[in-house]
Structures are given as structure tokens and as C-alpha cells.
Design a protein around this nucleic acid. Structure first.
Lengths: 195, 195
DNA sequence: GTAGCTATTAAGACTAAGTGTTATGAGGTG
DNA sequence: CACCTCATAACACTTAGTCTTAATAGCTAC
């Protein structure tokens, strides 16, 4: 183990530092060269050379990338958007919503959409049917008939099938190109007034 | 309608521009003063004065804010994190996951967690139980026993109740402080090998 | 009609967090 | 000794601002 020359050791030290640098930047892309220099106990110049070697862009560029990616991801992942767009709504009667699926909604390394999204669209549509602010899902019986793929546009149609007091039985059928991909029956409970 | 003095008209024009500015920046926070100046057909100086009046920070600050917010939101909203953390897993037998709930997971203006998250945690835990890459949910019967609130830590316990070929019946019970908040029965289908 | 107000534009000096290039020095090597 | 690698430093430049202070255009009020 003592066979390494001091020169090789110095090189090793540099490579080690570069690995740390990579990890640091990855875990927190908002660190400036100065921050990094302090953390790794080297000068700012060294950090700059390291970054150049590793092809890591400057903090502002990293920020810009994050902000941009965030803009598109937050769109597709925010509760507002993962539930689809309401295109028809008759309170206490029926409603239709459409969800455009994107890569972010798919299983990693696959183009199959996670069932959560189909469920989220259907359940939020069911809840929207009730003309009340405070609504909760009690039970649900759902069936995923057919896998949905990235790019598919899911059309969910729902209607109130039954009502007993503040409990609504709502059925939702979702389609992709007229193929039924999902059927769900939700029991939704309205807590506030107005339901 | 002709009663307005030219002076008042000029003021109106400015206020109108400031409204446009506000909207532009809100819809795309990554626009520089130069971009904005071009869009609104005024000089960069004017944009700077307007921003100062309106208290809109510079583009880099806006970027930083977005990037920062993105970091925390992506954490809580990304499929990886909205499904909780696996803390125990016996393939084809049983598993436990824990989900820490945050404000982002709640209904707007409320501290009640959207049912989707309980469902997402449970369904992904059910899928994780199967030792196969390609897994789909066939059916599910779920019951939301009790509302979950922001800050609650949901512990989901699941086990394989039955198996017929590549179809698994998996039950999941979720608790917050030993109170059962969710029960679900999932039929999960394994497509790949290894199940 | 000239002084004054408002909105806009411009100009000057400064900042952060870089870029890219070119020294300079410290340690070790052939 | 000359040479190499690595770390550091020094210098000029960039972007997208900051803050302050003019300068101008267009109208108004006395």
C-alpha cells in the first residue's frame, strides 16, 4: 500500500476532491464557487479549474436550469395539474375532466403512467361534483382496466349515482381513445354546507 | 369619456404597463429587464424604475427563489417522495413504509392531506412487495377511515394475503399514531419474471 | 411664456459571480 | 539542473443587475 509515489498521491487527492465537488454540487446546485472553496478547503481558483475540468457550469447556469426544469415539472406534478382539467361540470350531477399525460407521470424507465394519476384525476373529479368546499373520500372501489401510456389523453366521465344525506356514490369511467382504462366508484362525504 | 386630462392619461398608461409587467413576470419569472423592455416597448431604465416601484426583485433573485422552492417542492411532490420511505421489505411477504406529510400535500387552504397521498403510499408499497420490475395494479378497494393532517406521519403496513399465479392480493393498513386512517386491498399483477 | 411637474430615458459608478488567460510558486521527479 | 503537476494568484472581461444623478419631452399653472 506504500508503493504510491507522492506525485500519484497528489493526483489522487485532486481526484478525490473532484468527486466531492461533484457530489456537493449535485446535492445542492445553489452553492457558489466561494462556498465550495470554503467547504473543500481550497482556493476559489482551484474550484474554477476543477469545475472546468468536470464540465460543471457556473452557479447561475445551474440555477437557471433548475428554475426552468422546475417550471415544467411543477406544472405536471402540482396537485392542480395532476388532476386534469375540468371541461364540464354539473354540480351534484355529472362532470368530465381531461388529463394529458407526460413522461414525469410514468414509471421510471417506462412509458406506462403510474396508476396514481388515473386515480387522482378520477377522485378529484368525483370530489368536484359536490358543490361544497369540505369534501372527503370515504371509500373507493377502483379497477385499472388497461395501462395508460405517456402522451395518452385520459377523459374521465363521472356522475352521481346515488345520494343518501351527505354521502354521495359517484362513478367514474375513464377512457383513452374510447378504450376504457379505468372504472371507479367513490363514496364522497360532504362536510360543509352547500352540498 | 373624454374628460381625462393628458396628464392623467399618461399616468394611466404607466399603471397599465405596470400591470402588464407584473403579469409577465409572474407568468415567466426568468425574463430579464432587457426582455421585458423589448416586450413593453420601453427602455430598460423604465423597467428598472417600474420594478423598484412594484417591489419586483431582479431576475437572479427570482431565479434563486424558484430554484429553492423547486428543491423543496420537487422533494415532496416527486413520485419518489410522495410514496413514502420503505423501511422494511420482505419480498412477496410484507413491508412497511412511512410518509411524512407536508403542507404541499394538503388541500388548498386546509391542513387535511389529500387522499391521493395516502393512496399513493399504499399502492406503491403494495407494488414494492412484488419482486418484479414490471408490476401493475389491477383493482383496489380502499377505505379512508380518518382524515390525515399536515405533519402526521403515516405508517403503512402491508402483506401479501393471497397469490394466484401472477396475481397478488395485497392488503395495506395505514396508521397515524396507532389510529387506523386507511385500509386498502390491492390486486397487483406481475408481468415480468422474478415475481 | 416661463417655471414646474411627471414620465421616460440616459449616464456613471458599483456589485456578484462568474469567464478565460496567463503568470507564479511549491513539491517532487528524471 | 531543468521539468512537471498542482494549487494559487492576477488581470481583463461579462451579465444583469444595483443606486444615484442628470437630461429631456410634454404638458400645466400662473
Amino acid at each position: 500500500m506504500e508503493r504510491q509515489s507522492p506525485r500519484a498521491l497528489r493526483r489522487l487527492k485532486r481526484i478525490e476532491r473532484e468527486n466531492s465537488l461533484r457530489k456537493l454540487v449535485e446535492s445542492n446546485p445553489l452553492l457558489t464557487d466561494e462556498d465550495l472553496a470554503e467547504m473543500l478547503k481550497v482556493s476559489v481558483s482551484t474550484i474554477r479549474f476543477d469545475r472546468a475540468r468536470l464540465g460543471i457550469p457556473e452557479v447561475r447556469e445551474r440555477m437557471r436550469e433548475m428554475a426552468e426544469r422546475a417550471r415544467s415539472m411543477l406544472r405536471s406534478l402540482s396537485p392542480e395539474e395532476m388532476t386534469g382539467e375540468l371541461i364540464e361540470l354539473k354540480i351534484n350531477e355529472s362532470g368530465i375532466s381531461v388529463l394529458e399525460t407526460t413522461q414525469e407521470m410514468a414509471f421510471k424507465g417506462s412509458n406506462i403512467i403510474r396508476e396514481i394519476y388515473t386515480f387522482a384525476q378520477a377522485s378529484s373529479l368525483a370530489m368536484a361534483l359536490i358543490g361544497s368546499e369540505e369534501v372527503l373520500i370515504g371509500r373507493a372501489r377502483v379497477s385499472f382496466k388497461h395501462p395508460v401510456r405517456v402522451g395518452d389523453k385520459i377523459v374521465a366521465r363521472s356522475r352521481v349515482a346515488n345520494r343518501k344525506g351527505n354521502k354521495f356514490l359517484i362513478s367514474v369511467h375513464s377512457y383513452v381513445n374510447d378504450v376504457e382504462v379505468f372504472v371507479g366508484h367513490f363514496i364522497v362525504v360532504s362536510l360543509g354546507k352547500g352540498g
